[in-house]
Simulated assay, not measured.
Amino acid sequence: MSNPTEQGYFTEENSAEVVVSRNAKAKDARLAEVMSSIIKHLHAMVKEVEPTQEEWLEAIKFLTETGHKSDDWRQEFILLSDVLGVSMLVDAINNRKPSGASESTVLGPFHVPDAPDRPMGSNICLDGKGEKMLVKGRILDVDGNPIAGAKIDVWQTNDDGFYDVQQKGIQPDFNLRGVFRTGDDGTYWFWGAKPRFYPIPDDGPVGRLLGQLGRHPFRPAHLHYIVEADGYERLVTHIFDPDDDYIHSDAVFGVKESLMAKFEKIEDPGRIVAEGVDGPFYEVIHDFVLAPEK
């Protein structure tokens, strides 16, 4: 006896409706909702594209290889989500901000949760390599008031485009990482090294897909931030160099116009003496505005 919830036999015309109807007894309403949407859009895509049997098998092989490339240290499916813009879309949906609050972007795979607390103004570049860079700004609320006691977790690549965890034994542990806490005036400042662009891992199926699509694997130079304070939403974000060669074509779509900050080269002798450095340096000034906790 047929189930009254089933919508008849499968045909090309009613394919999605029939498959969705088979899920009527799903034990979780959210799962049923999500699967219904996936099935409808996937079937619509297949009807639009009309892949050959050979093309569909190539798609299955690609997904299989993507799974085989993933392990405890690398998640090729996250990489696929990144290059298709899905990671940034999920981030945007889950981090809608009130007007005036700083925008978020993706966390990335190189955050280390136990970076050391450092005194404000410290130099996080432990090996002294690269071009000196002074980063400073304020942590504010949406009304422009300074936020005291904000925790600022920062990390960045070196001038070769590598994070410390990618070069164990070459870079010191916790190189170009640090945690700072603002005082009453909400200001922050620290020294680092000017970062550079770098490629996402492109030696797997996702990298080959990018090549076939005529796309490069590079991310523009940026600094990572996590900013937290009591009574405010946690902010995961970057600041970007607007003059970077890849600023308009980030491989993972993480760039937002509001997160660009001028990397200005300071060559004025008076400023150099005042900052106590031995030559020209870069200065980056950027304020972050936190949204009130919901």
Rank of each mutant, 00 (worst) to 15 (best):
E54C: 02
Y232E: 06
P280H: 09
V236Y: 11
E6F: 00
R181A: 04
S258R: 14
E65F: 02
P199R: 08
P205R: 03
G149L: 08
E50Q: 14
R215G: 00
G128T: 03
G178P: 12
N175I: 09
P201Y: 11
A115C: 01
A101H: 07
N123L: 07
L223N: 12
D243N: 13
D250Q: 07
K97N: 05
L140G: 09
A16R: 00
P269C: 06
F288C: 00
G279T: 11
V86K: 01
L42W: 12
V83K: 06
E13H: 06
L31V: 12
G279W: 13
F240R: 03
F162E: 10
F281P: 07
E275V: 07
F253R: 13
A24E: 04
P51K: 13
F77P: 02
K136H: 14
A251W: 03
Y282S: 04
G130R: 06
F218Y: 15
L42F: 13
D173W: 00
Q167L: 14
P119I: 03
V277C: 10
S81W: 06
D241Y: 13
N94I: 05
S122P: 02
K61H: 14
C125M: 05
N95F: 00
H111N: 08
K25I: 02
D91R: 12
F253S: 15
I124S: 04
Q156T: 15
L213K: 10
L57C: 04
V165F: 01
V86P: 00
K168G: 04
D244S: 05
G186I: 06
V227Q: 06
C125Y: 00
D117C: 04
L107S: 09
K168C: 02
A115V: 05
I78A: 12
F77R: 05
K194Y: 02
D141V: 05
D250A: 10
R138W: 03
V236A: 12
L213T: 01
A221V: 00
T11V: 03
L223M: 14
Q166A: 10
S87L: 11
D230A: 15
I147R: 13
N3Y: 01
A92R: 13
L42S: 14
K194D: 03
S249P: 00
M133T: 15
L80K: 07
G144P: 04
